[in-house]
Simulated scan of single mutants.
Amino acid sequence: MSTRRVPDDACGIAQAAAVVGDWWSLLVLREIARGHHRFDRLADELGLSRKVLSERLRTLTDRNVLERRRYQDRPPRYEYVLTEQGLGLMPVLVSLQDWADRWLLGDGTLTGRAADGGAEARRVAALAGEAVPEGLRLPGTDGRDHDPLPPRAGATVLFAYPATGVPGIPADLAGTPVPGSAGCTLESRRFRAAWPRFDAEGIAVRGVSTQSPQEQAAFAEAEHLPFPLLSDAQLHLTAALRLPTFRAGQSLRIKRLILVVGPDRVIRHTIFPVTDIPAAVSQALALATETRERVRMV
């Protein structure tokens, strides 16, 4: 039987491990971040016994990582949502994923690229048919918080990118570029040039990166972008969709990808990896137009 070590009382790693340092606890948090809040859905997604799931949910609720909310009175049923403390664990989940993608599922290379048939590509491809969770709010370049999916759009194109340059800061001060991370300014300009066609079709465009809202706002103003850029600096969207990342300096950056989402919040198409930016923008327009037309026919 293990005994508590007094030095661990002041060790943040030990204290965190006591709360979430368990295989099933981490996977429960992963699924709740994905938008699966109800007991039966969690059990189905995880293939976990009801007894073990109940134990993990009780522990995470007792430790204020999750909040238990009633959604039905007769019989009483509850769903589980992340508290502010729980949301603070999202960067931890993404960091674990990033480490495994690089060192366990990859060859250890630090890169902003992805192999066509690799684990990251399979994970992104599997997003087709999944829903973007409700309740997400990301700061935009207009100073307001946004749902990543505008409610009245016939379809939405979300393009995620590592990081643009910041006006006024020389590129050589931003650190050594990671292979595969260049091209973000070009991508935004291509979407800007195609914006009239997206807008005419009733298709919303949103750019997403982990840059700060201030950095994004400076770039959007300098480039006269007609659509908002959204900041996922807290990695809430990245964790919810398990988007592929890489570490540049001290920051996690999203690898370049494009999602086409219907008005029902369901992801209909994914483009990843993005190797030809102009072709990917044209493909996104065609896929979003097709999505909008199919929705109208239903």
Rank of each mutant, 00 (worst) to 15 (best):
D8H: 14
D9K: 10
A10M: 12
A10K: 12
G12A: 15
A14R: 15
Q15S: 14
D22F: 08
W23V: 15
E31W: 09
A33R: 05
H36N: 13
E45P: 10
L48A: 09
E55W: 10
R58E: 13
L60M: 03
T61D: 01
R70T: 09
Y71D: 10
R74G: 06
L82W: 09
Q85L: 13
L87F: 11
L87H: 15
L87G: 15
L87Q: 14
L93M: 11
D98G: 11
D101N: 14
G106N: 04
R113N: 10
D116I: 12
A125D: 12
G129H: 03
V132Y: 02
P150H: 03
V157F: 04
V157A: 04
T164Y: 03
G165C: 09
A171T: 14
G175P: 09
G175K: 02
L186K: 10
S188H: 14
F191A: 01
R192W: 06
R197P: 03
D199K: 13
I203V: 15
I203K: 05
A204R: 01
Q211L: 07
E223Q: 15
L225F: 04
P228Y: 05
L230G: 06
D232S: 03
D232T: 02
R242D: 11
A248F: 00
Q250K: 12
V260R: 04
P263V: 09
I271H: 08
P278H: 04
S282D: 15
A284N: 07
A288G: 05
